[in-house]
């Protein structure tokens, strides 16, 4: 399902006292825990939300969150409905042709297969993935049959109800699903590293904004606060580190 125009701004992050400050509208999906999700209070929450809370403060810009559908994000960025994409979007050469990315704030993601049956045929069977993702692109090139869904949880549900033999998604997203399934879900096959890490997507013309955020991200990498956040959200010791 596609939402072409973007939608609701949910909340201004840093108090909007200084109205002269630049307002940066950031788009997120709100359906990709632990990266970003809508918590039970109805507000955006997650690793990326907390990270950009800090980043915007360091960059001295006012940030505003906007939830929009995954599928229409890049077109909406291009037409100027918001200024940045913060939605667990991996940097890929294909996306680079259309938009720019800041330095990565999360290392190259590992994607993994999860299935209900340990012997599931993920290599040539039916594999579900979210549409327009790096994972869907990967499956389309394998011998497996790709089944595309608009949201990641639908892709998981497809395995649960037998539509697909396995789901292929970001292992950080799948981890709680597998851990909490009480043995229903198991990992199958090898985890695969895809892409060049996750960055914030920007219009190619917004070079200044890119420089601002690059600087802020670098400063958080340098003082170790980014690593702390990663540990907080991605399972402590096992969390990827810079």
């Amino acid at each position: 399902m596609k939402k072409l125009i973007l939608t609701t701004a949910i909340l201004a992050l840093t108090g909007g006292a200084a109205s002269a400050q630049q307002v940066v509208r950031l788009a997120t999906e709100g359906a990709y825990p632990p990266f970003n999700f809508i918590n039970d209070a109805g507000e955006p929450d997650g690793f990326e939300i907390e990270l950009f809370d800090t980043l915007c403060e360091r960059a001295e810009v006012t940030c505003e969150w906007v939830t929009t559908d995954w599928d229409g994000m890049i077109p909406n960025l291009q037409s100027g409905n918001f200024d940045g994409i913060v939605a667990g979007m991996s940097i890929t050469p294909e996306r680079r042709e259309a938009i720019d990315f800041t330095a990565s704030y999360y290392p190259a993601i590992t994607s993994a297969y999860a299935a209900m049956d340990p012997d599931a045929d993920f290599a040539t069977g039916v594999v579900s993935a979210q549409v327009n993702t790096i994972q869907a692109g990967h499956i389309a090139e394998t011998d497996a049959t790709l089944l595309e869904y608009t949201t990641p949880d639908e892709a998981v549900a497809a395995v649960r109800n037998g539509e697909a033999d396995a789901v292929f998604a970001d292992s950080d997203y799948l981890k709680p699903v597998v851990d909490e399934s009480g043995g229903e879900f198991v990992w199958v096959g090898e985890a695969i590293a895809l892409g060049e890490g996750i960055g914030m997507g920007l219009r190619k013309s917004d070079t200044e904004l890119k420089a601002t955020f690059d600087e802020a991200i670098d400063s958080m990498k340098a003082d170790g606060s980014l690593n702390e956040l990663l540990q907080k959200w991605f399972g402590g010791e096992e969390a990827p580190q810079f």
């Binding site: 632990p34 918590n39 039970d40 949880d153 909490e180």
Partner: peptide
Amino acid sequence: AMKTQTFSYP
């Protein structure tokens, strides 16, 4: 949608 323990009401 299915909610994991990340949420208050899984």
